[in-house]
């Protein structure tokens, strides 16, 4: 199954686009589907669109869980 990794908003380029960071990988995404995103927010990204804003606590819990999974079960590539 796919994993939803929270992306941290690093930079708002203009009202419609932002640069986000996925654990070290930066890329540009569209903000067309979410309102009121600012730098430091976490978002779930699908196919280049931020789908939803996450609160920081929620995002950190997910990131902690993913880190645990990465250590425990390993990731196959």
């Amino acid at each position: 199954m796919c994993l939803a990794i929270p992306a941290r908003v690093e930079q708002i380029i203009d009202s419609g686009n932002a640069v986000v960071d996925f654990g070290g990988v930066r890329r540009s995404i569209s903000l067309a589907l979410v309102d009121g995103v600012s730098v430091g927010d976490y978002v779930i990204v699908h196919v280049g669109f931020a789908l939803q804003k996450l609160d920081v606590e929620e995002a950190e819990r997910t990131l902690a869980l993913l880190a645990e999974m990465n250590q425990g079960a390993g990731r196959e590539t």
Binding site: M1, C2, L3, A4, I5, A7, F22, G23, G24, V25, R27, I44, V45, H46, V47, L66, R75, T77
Partner: peptide, 13 residues
Amino acid sequence: PCLSCSTHALGEM
């Protein structure tokens, strides 16, 4: 398909 999300954290794109 829901192939998304995972790999962005891990580098190769």
